[in-house]
Amino acid sequence: IRLYEREDYRGQMIEFTEDCSCLQDRFRFNEIHSLNVLEGSWVLYELSNYRGRQYLLMPGDYRRYQDWGATNARVGSLRRV
């Protein structure tokens, strides 16, 4: 999964292949505005340590956080399923 700091895949990008319990420890931002799921399925959590609202993401492109059903861009952790 590739996470981007801004909409439309702009700004700083980070790629994950494994679970991350605290996004801010690995990426200086806690807001993700766009992403690409390259393979497999992922769950994004609004808070760190896999807490808060959850969003199940299938392979595909998500140009804005609204595309995955979120009401804001906050992402605290993520897990591959």
Rank of each mutant, 00 (worst) to 15 (best):
S77E: 00
E46W: 00
L35C: 11
L78P: 01
R53L: 04
V75K: 01
R63Q: 13
H33V: 11
N49R: 05
R64E: 02
L47F: 10
L3F: 09
Y62A: 15
Y55N: 11
Q12A: 07
F29E: 12
E31L: 12
D67C: 04
E39Y: 03
F27N: 05
I14V: 09
Q54M: 02
L56S: 15
T17D: 09
P59H: 07
E7K: 14
L78G: 01
R26K: 10
Y9R: 15
R64D: 15
I14G: 05
W42A: 01
D8R: 11
I1E: 01
A70Q: 08
E5R: 11
N30G: 12
E15F: 10
F29H: 06
A70V: 12
C22S: 10
A70N: 14
E18F: 06
S21D: 12
R64Y: 11
W42R: 00
V43S: 08
I32K: 02
E18I: 06
Y45F: 02
D19R: 04
Y50L: 02
D8Y: 11
N49G: 06
R74W: 08
A70F: 12
E7M: 08
N49W: 06
P59D: 15
C20D: 14
W42L: 03
Q24N: 08
N72V: 13
N36E: 11
G76K: 05
I1M: 08
W42E: 00
N36K: 08
D8S: 08
V37L: 14
Y65H: 14
C20K: 05
G11Y: 00
P59M: 07
C20M: 07
F16V: 11
Q54I: 02
E7Q: 09
Y50H: 07
H33K: 06
Y55K: 13
R10K: 15
I14P: 00
L57S: 09
F29G: 09
G40P: 06
P59E: 09
Q12I: 06
M58W: 04
Y45T: 06
A70K: 14
Y62I: 06
N72Y: 15
N49Q: 10
L47Q: 13
W68M: 15
L78K: 00
N36Q: 12
G69Y: 11
Y9V: 01
E46G: 02
I32H: 01
A70C: 13
E18Q: 12
D61I: 02
E15M: 09
D25E: 13
M58N: 11
S48L: 03
Y45N: 01
N36R: 10
R26F: 02
D8V: 07
Q66N: 06
F29T: 04
E7G: 05
L56P: 14
I14L: 05
L23R: 02
W68F: 15
G52N: 01
E46F: 03
T17V: 10
L23C: 08
E18T: 08
S34D: 00
S21A: 08
R26Q: 11
N72A: 06
Y4R: 02
G11P: 01
L38D: 13
V43A: 06
